[in-house]
């Protein structure tokens, strides 16, 4: 329990530090910190507690982070990216990248490339998580908007006459 509390605290502060690094205003720092801590706890809980494969753990943690930031974005009327970008950072597989590069430098090329490939797979899991959540929510949110835009793309400039405004400068 102590282990998880400490992990949460460090992930929280790391995310807050990243919020400062990305020049986020003060009112979103603790919110993105909460999401980052939550994502990291889920990641290590799945990986260490339930010994889930790191691909699935990364994927599920990213899905939770993306959903939580969509929720926060709805609550506080801010763009989703603002919460998501700092909160995703703790999951980035920096350790795998460093280890793989280090092994390759020491001429253990096959083992190094194995580790590097693992890191690449983990980042693919993160990408997949972001893609799925943002794709589904985009479809839900902007379905009407997209339909209108598709109609407009088909019609070109032929918009309803009451919506069309002529430029006053052009009439002169």
């Amino acid at each position: 329990m102590m282990h998880y509390l400490m992990a949460f605290a460090f992930a929280f502060f790391a995310t807050v530090a990243f919020g400062v690094l990305f020049q986020g205003p003060k009112r979103i720092l603790w919110r993105s910190g909460l999401i980052g801590g939550l994502g990291w706890i889920i990641f290590i809980g799945l990986k260490e507690g339930f010994s889930v494969h790191s691909f699935s753990a990364n994927f599920l943690a990213t899905v939770v982070i993306a959903l939580a930031s969509e929720l926060f974005a709805r609550i506080w009327k801010e763009p989703t990216t603002v919460f998501e970008v700092p909160a995703i950072i703790p999951l980035v597989p920096g350790l795998g990248m460093y280890k793989g590069m280090n092994y390759i430098l020491q001429d253990y090329v096959s083992y190094g490339s194995e580790v590097l490939l693992g890191a690449a797979v983990d980042s693919c899991a993160i990408a997949l998580g972001i893609m799925m959540v943002s794709g589904v929510l985009r479809a839900l949110k902007t379905g009407n908007d997209m339909a209108r835009q598709r109609q407009q793309d088909l019609l070109g400039t032929a918009v309803p006459p009451d919506l069309y405004v002529t430029d006053p400068e052009e009439e002169k």
């Binding site: 530090a17 690094l21 970008v85 995703i88 950072i89 980042s123 972001i130 985009r138």
Partner: peptide
């Protein structure tokens, strides 16, 4: 690894994935 983290292109990566989805 800890010191590398602030320089990793996390924002570019996230934005790229979101752009693909859009």
């Amino acid at each position: 690894v800890g010191a590398l983290m602030p320089f990793l292109p996390g924002l570019a990566f996230t934005n790229g994935v979101r752009d693909y989805m859009a």
